[in-house]
Design a protein around this nucleic acid. Structure first.
Lengths: 330, 330
DNA sequence: AGAAATACGTGAAACATTTCACGCCGAAGG
DNA sequence: CCTTCGGCGTGAAATGTTTCACGTATTTCT
């Protein structure tokens, strides 16, 4: 007995169903075909356990139903949530997700792009801060939170508006001595605008503020601790509101303040940015500017997979919202 | 002028270099070939910007250098960190990562497996709690934290040992009235053994304990709040140590306790499980049993890609460690 | 009822690679 | 110097699809 050990192919299905090869192909591509034929094919395929070979298909069509995701990390709660929403949005459109984690290393990022070209993904959604990254204009690319050039669509939260919102909120809650704490080095991303928006409002309202940022890798969080200590006299902090560039930073600062004997939000109010809420614990919340993660993902996918590639937007800003979370008085 | 708009193929490289097709193939597969030939091929390929077409290659070889990751989510800090380590471990071995997020939905999980079969990934690393999941014995599969059957290797943390460690620690810190708080419904995973280990030690040491768990979806966290309230009399809690099945749960419980006027760790000590430390804030830490995430990932990858598939281990337990984090008195 | 038009199933060609039997050339042995 | 053997480059076959020109059968119009 001649045992067919190999997985069944279209040819086998065609033989089993007594139809032509092309007919089987049409059935699996949803191309109209006589009902009786369709039925016989479906039946034969089921009987043989036939599965389309995506690699043969990809070879012919040059389309792979795969999108590559290039992210700095997925263990950061914001990136993790974003990756998840992107993956779900893609699967809703029957696309698979190829994941690349770069650690924000420029070489790794560039190599990922090369690998994607080679692997012939249908497109890339990238969150990269590498200023010199070369993207292939032929390969559909959507950048999140980072503007490249008019030819490369960028989807971002309204960081400027978010910064303004934070300042407005703190001021309307009675703060008159503000500070902006900025984590990480200066990057090419849109996220830098958070501080710009914050400063705009402070100036417009005539409220005093200072900007503290970490530039160097070595400085670490001590910069903020030192700053805070320098602003405490007689056990009293001469700041009453701090806007942090990130929720994670806000939580860290909250811990620092409590160590330094300052009460949050009684003595000083804190607003973060991102809207990470899956921590579960009340103690891990902070008042924040919430990024619309699901919308960011959905929009990125929609733009990437848009049929008409002639009229792509170059920048899409999605609205953010303020959410109280225990580090403000309200 | 005849413009070649298509991407270059091996045939083009062969023509450019003046060698045969097979020779070009050998060069790109690291099959020994005369040095002069190799050089001409490399040069021609560089000149034409040739990239191997992975889909044609996959068609011939049935190998794709791709591994599928099936996870409940990546926005959970533990799963996110695991996904990241897996992705990095795979890329170290020149494998790509195909990401599937299931939300622990059994249908989605099963469909992912079907899709993977169709997409001909070289293997699957899965974290699924679906008891009825059918895995294809032909397709290499490694399960994390969930034992299927002797034929399916499972990599897990030493959950039993972790539970024991937690109990020992709490007892040696002076606790005499313990409780185990268990989040989520009963699942097929190895994680259930955390409670078993905890109970073993409590019984062996003759320390009283209770087990509280959420079975129903609807019950939610109120179960724990109600339990705690029921155990407070005259403002004093008659428990002095709680082991939570998860760090996230521990942080939630910590918040609840503080709301209820109990001090952590002065009045009651708390130990979690997982070892999530990237939250940044002190307030978001808890004492915990740390899972070796990077090792879990590396081990899973090593087993999945092991050449000799005849002698696969059926269960590998990796050691956990206790780490203090502010919710215990030490 | 006959001819033209329409609808639709057919199967060969093409996609870019890997593999392998073949044959060429040079080296080694007698 | 002739023969044999081994090493290595060669190119055709094969992989499983999709596509498209083709031909057959059925329908429709007069």
């Amino acid at each position: 007995m001649k045992q067919k050990s190999t997985t069944p192919t279209m040819k086998d299905v065609a033989r089993e169903a007594g139809v032509a090869l092309g007919t089987v192909s049409k059935v699996f591509n949803n191309i109209p075909v006589g009902e009786s034929y369709r039925q016989r094919v479906v039946e034969a395929a089921g009987k043989l356990g036939y599965q389309v070979n995506q690699y043969a298909r990809g070879l012919k069509t040059n389309r792979t139903n795969t999108v590559a995701l290039i992210l700095p990390s997925v263990d950061h709660p914001f990136f993790g949530a974003l990756a998840q929403q992107l993956c779900l949005a893609l699967s809703r459109r029957s696309y698979r997700t190829l994941l690349y984690v770069t650690g924000s290393n420029p070489e790794v990022e560039q190599q990922c792009i090369r690998m994607v070209q080679q692997n012939k993904a249908d497109g890339i959604i990238g969150l990269t801060y590498n200023p010199g990254l070369e993207v292939d204009e032929a390969l559909p690319f959507v950048s999140i939170d980072r503007y490249f050039s008019p030819g490369v669509p960028c989807v971002a939260s309204d960081n400027l508006g978010g910064g303004r919102l934070a300042a407005e909120r703190l001021i309307s809650l009675g703060c008159r001595h503000l500070a902006f704490f900025r984590n990480g080095p200066i990057q090419a991303g849109e996220a830098d605008k958070r501080g710009d928006g914050f400063e705009q409002i402070c100036r417009a309202r005539g409220v005093s503020y200072e900007v503290i940022r970490i530039n160097d890798e070595e400085q670490s969080l001590e910069v903020f601790r030192d700053y805070l200590i320098g602003h405490i006299s007689n056990g009293k902090l001469d700041l009453d509101g701090i806007f942090c560039s990130t929720d994670l930073l806000a939580l860290t600062i909250r811990g620092m303040l409590e160590e330094l004997g300052q009460r949050v939000p009684e003595d000083v109010q804190l607003v973060g940015f991102d809207g990470i809420r899956q921590f579960g614990s009340e103690g891990c919340y902070c008042s924040t500017i919430v990024q619309p993660i699901a919308q960011l993902a959905q929009t990125s996918v929609d733009i990437l997979l848009q049929e008409d590639r002639s009229a792509l937007p170059s920048l899409i800003c999605l609205p953010v919202a303020y959410a109280a979370g225990g580090t403000t008085r309200e």
